[in-house]
């Protein structure tokens, strides 16, 4: 078997590895097939039925569930496909809280993208019976909101929880039109086994799962999570001198694009009003604010008296390589002792 399979999509010959779905092969070659429930990090399930394509010699089928085959001839659009797709989309839109202005996902939303690509028959939507969208928003979690009125039931969150986090704390519940994503006993998410890793939130294609207090960053910087020893790659967003967001770096070799609750949502400590902002010096028993010059000369003068075995440094595993290097160098070269250790054993 050759390493690549050759097939034709919309008249273009493309190559794809065996086992690749038509959808992902097309997307990798910049051929857009509208889709909703497929996510590159997760297994495909073929439930949104939006990515229908025509394959020569077969009935129309969903491209996300059909592996490429040698010589396959695929067309991604024709009148029949588009009609089926458009009706599908109109039904979704009708059952969706379409108040985009007030949605955190506005302009990042997959449903908006589909709508732009496929188009809607507004008259037909008006002719349909609009349901009452009155599901209460689940705001029980301090870091994210769950709004079933915006949910498209694509199941990406369910699969993210199962395949990335591994805890399987959410699933489809109920049947028919009542179908929603819920936890055991259909309780608020906070009463579930959810650990707020946010793997679902970050993958939600619409505004059903959104971070609370979401602020759009003005710029983002690649760095490493400041918490445990896993060393996950994070992309930290800032705005106005404050840290406002954190997302996983998809191809981070240590974390492979995953994060836990701390790395994704727990960076708020940096913005805490209780941060130390100036040196403090104890004067008459109280710690009072001081300038760097005063603090440095005081410390230098005092430490100068304890060189040798009367002095010790306790360095920190929360400080960088460079910080630690300088601390041990200072201890050894300036203070003349090997009395340095840190919290490695705690």
């Amino acid at each position: 078997m050759s390493e690549f399979i050759t097939l034709t999509i919309d008249g273009r010959e493309i190559k794809a590895a065996p086992g690749t779905s038509i959808l992902r092969a097309a997307l990798a070659n910049d051929i857009y097939i509208p889709h909703l429930c497929d996510h590159k990090d997760l297994t495909s399930v073929g439930i949104c039925r939006v990515c229908l394509v025509d394959i020569e010699g077969r009935r129309p089928t969903v491209s996300c569930m059909t592996p490429v085959e040698e010589g396959m001839v695929v067309s991604t659009a024709n009148e029949e496909l588009e009609q089926t797709r458009r009706m599908n989309l109109e039904l979704l839109v009708l059952n969706h809280d379409y108040d985009c202005q007030n949605c955190a996902q506005n302009n990042k939303c997959q449903l908006q993208e589909l709508t732009r690509f496929i188009g809607l028959d507004e008259d037909r939507i008006k002719a349909m019976r609009a349901p009452e969208l009155a599901d209460p928003i689940d705001d029980s979690n301090p870091y994210y909101l769950r709004d079933m009125n915006r949910c498209v039931r694509c199941g990406i969150c369910v699969r993210a929880c199962e395949e990335i986090q591994g805890d399987e704390c959410i699933d489809f519940v109920f049947r028919g039109i009542e179908t929603r994503i819920g936890v055991l006993g259909d309780k608020p998410i906070i009463d579930s086994t959810c650990t707020t890793c946010g793997e679902c939130v970050t993958r939600c294609p619409v505004g059903a799962l959104v971070p609370r207090h979401a602020v759009e960053p003005t710029y983002e910087v690649e760095t490493v999570c400041p918490f445990c020893g896993c060393g996950c790659g994070i992309l930290v967003g800032a705005r106005g001198g404050k840290v406002v967001s954190s997302t996983a770096i998809p191809d981070s070799p240590s974390s492979g694009g995953s994060l836990c609750v701390k790395g994704r949502f727990g960076l708020g400590f940096v913005n805490s009003p209780r941060r130390l902002t100036t040196p403090l010096i104890r004067k008459e028993g109280k710690l009072v604010e001081a300038g760097w010059d005063e603090a440095l000369s005081l410390v230098a003068e005092k430490l100068g008296r304890y060189k040798g075995s009367e002095y010790a440094t306790i360095a920190s595993a929360k400080c960088n390589v460079e910080d630690n290097y300088v601390m041990q160098k200072f201890t050894r070269a300036v203070m003349g002792t090997n009395n340095i250790d840190h919290c490695a054993r705690l």
């Binding site: 399930v45 439930i47 949104c48 039925r49 939006v50 089926t84 009706m87 599908n88 039904l91 979704l92 009708l94 059952n95 498209v152 039931r153 199941g155 489809f172 109920f174 049947r175 028919g176 039109i177 009542e178 179908t179």
Partner: peptide, 12 residues
């Protein structure tokens, strides 16, 4: 009795 997974059946 629709299982509720796919859009056409659930909503349609």
């Amino acid at each position: 009795e629709s299982c509720g997974q796919c859009i056409p059946c659930r909503l349609g």
